[in-house]
Every structure is written in structure tokens, then in C-alpha cells.
């Protein structure tokens, strides 16, 4: 992942947000979607993506289903009701963090509005 230290803590939030917008997605599709949305600026590696997906699945935030596609089984992830709540909480947390960073990095600009 590019700029990995900065993005690493937000990976779960990115995944939850994408799944909310796309109903269900599979691993490779998530990596490509992130690449596309950030114009190639952010690359999520498999070594970062799958552990995050499995953790979210283990915590009950994601549900999975398999489908036969092009001669192989594909594992699709979707949000559970708990996942939707978690996504809202994580988004709020991330937005607050970004806002605080704005205050810290550009104090004058932030106060002036």
C-alpha cells in the first residue's frame, strides 16, 4: 500500500465504506476499486487486505457467500447489520480525526473557515 503508515489504520473503514456502496465485493475487486478511486495513488496489497477482511468477518461485520464464476469459486463479502453500524461509527471517527488534523496542520485557515 502506498503511504502505508498513514493509510493502514483506515483500511477497515475503507473496506466497510466500499462494501456499503457496492452491496457485495470480492477481494481482488476491492483492490482494483481503491486503485481506481485514488487514480493509482493507493495500492492495497493482498497481505494487508485479506487479514483486514478476515478480521472484519470474524468480528461479525461481514457476511460471505460463494459463487461459481469463470470455473472457480469466488468469495463475496457484504455488510451485516452490525457491519453497517460499525461503518457509521468508523466514518464518524475518521472524519473527526481528519478535522482535528486540519486544525493542527492549518490552525489559521481552519479558524478563518
Amino acid at each position: 500500500m502506498a503511504n502505508n503508515k498513514l493509510y493502514k489504520g483506515s483500511l477497515s473503514t475503507i473496506i466497510l465504506k466500499l462494501l456499503e456502496e457496492n452491496d457485495r465485493m470480492y477481494g481482488y475487486e476491492i483492490t482494483q476499486k481503491v486503485k481506481e478511486l485514488t487514480a493509482g495513488e493507493l495500492i492495497i496489497t493482498e497481505g494487508a487486505l485479506y487479514p483486514a477482511l478476515h478480521k472484519l468477518e470474524g468480528d461479525g461485520y461481514l457476511t460471505v457467500e460463494y459463487q461459481l464464476v469463470n470455473n472457480r469459486q469466488r468469495k463475496y463479502y457484504a455488510l451485516t447489520p452490525d457491519g453497517k453500524k460499525e461503518k457509521a461509527a468508523k466514518m464518524e471517527e475518521l472524519e473527526r480525526f481528519v478535522q482535528q488534523m486540519q486544525f493542527l496542520l492549518h490552525p489559521k485557515k481552519s479558524i478563518d473557515g
Binding site: 496489497t45 493482498e46 497481505g47 485479506y50 487479514p51 478476515h54 478480521k55 468477518e57 470474524g58 468480528d59 461479525g60
Partner: peptide, 24 residues
Amino acid sequence: DFGDHQWRQLLGAKQKGVWRQVVR
């Protein structure tokens, strides 16, 4: 490109994920 160690990491992550589900 991916490298052996990342697949092992994936297996470990899956094990942890299953364990979390079991505990839940």
C-alpha cells in the same frame, strides 16, 4: 510478485478470523 510469506500471513489471518468467530 506476492511472495511466499504473504500467503502464509493470509493463512494466519484466516485462522485468527475463524477463531474470533468461534469465540463470538
